[in-house]
Amino acid sequence: MKQGRSDRDWAVVAVMTFGAGVLITWAITADSHAWPKLTSEQWAAWVQAIGSIAALMIGIGVPIWQRHVVSTEEARKERRLIRERCFRIRRATEAFQKRIGENLNVAEHYANGIGWGIPPHSPTATTEVEALLHEAWELPIVGAQLLGAVNFASAADDQVIDGSIDDALRPAYRKFARTAYDLCDALYETLDEILDQNSG
């Protein structure tokens, strides 16, 4: 459906409005500010002409207004859907990031020689986050950030052997997990920007 007003629509409305204005001005500024003396046939012709102009203006104006209303409503619905998508992705990412943070804490305990026997979450990515990946790609940048966080968390998971983090692999584990954590923070900022752009 064509949206908005075209230049042609505006031109026709402007011409008809100008014509109606000329007619009214002529009638008001006639001799002694009286209506011109016309025969009944002439009056009928003028009434018909004015009616035709009014009908044309309505015929053009109503569709223009209807298109405007439809366009406004569709834009409002789209903004609402975008906001709902942002909220779903944020909730899922927060739970995912919490698991990453707990894993980083476990890795730090291992490095300090405490907490032995505390296994990290593996896999780190939640099923909810993975299920929302396709939806995240509908938003600018968000899809890449979430996929990056999931991939780095998966790379960290690859460093876990038999439920524990090997000493030789711990630096890589922390690096991958930290990158995934930071990508989640960056994702929140992007979501906030999108929400600001689609408020109302």
Rank of each mutant, 00 (worst) to 15 (best):
R5E: 08
R5V: 14
R5A: 12
S6L: 08
S6I: 03
D7T: 09
D7V: 05
D7I: 10
D7Y: 06
R8C: 04
R8I: 06
R8F: 12
R8D: 13
D9C: 02
W10F: 11
W10A: 15
W10Y: 15
W10P: 00
W10K: 12
W10T: 12
A11S: 15
A14M: 06
M16R: 04
F18S: 11
G19K: 03
A20I: 12
A20E: 11
G21C: 11
V22F: 10
V22R: 01
L23R: 07
I24K: 01
I24L: 12
W26F: 13
W26A: 12
A27T: 13
A27I: 14
I28W: 12
I28G: 07
I28N: 07
I28D: 05
I28Q: 13
I28C: 09
T29R: 08
S32K: 11
S32N: 12
H33R: 10
A34D: 15
W35V: 09
L38V: 09
L38P: 04
L38Q: 11
T39M: 13
T39N: 14
Q42C: 07
Q42P: 08
A44G: 14
A45T: 11
A45G: 14
W46F: 15
W46M: 11
W46K: 05
V47R: 06
Q48P: 01
A49N: 01
I50A: 15
I50P: 03
G51F: 00
G51N: 10
S52Y: 04
S52R: 02
S52M: 06
I53V: 09
I53Q: 00
I53M: 08
I53C: 01
A55E: 08
A55S: 13
L56S: 07
M57R: 00
M57S: 02
M57Q: 07
M57T: 03
M57P: 00
I58D: 03
I58E: 06
G59L: 02
I60Q: 01
I60R: 00
G61S: 10
G61T: 09
G61Y: 02
G61L: 03
V62L: 08
V62M: 08
I64D: 06
W65S: 06
Q66H: 07
Q66C: 02
Q66V: 09
R67G: 00
H68Q: 10
H68C: 02
H68I: 01
H68T: 09
V69L: 08
V70T: 07
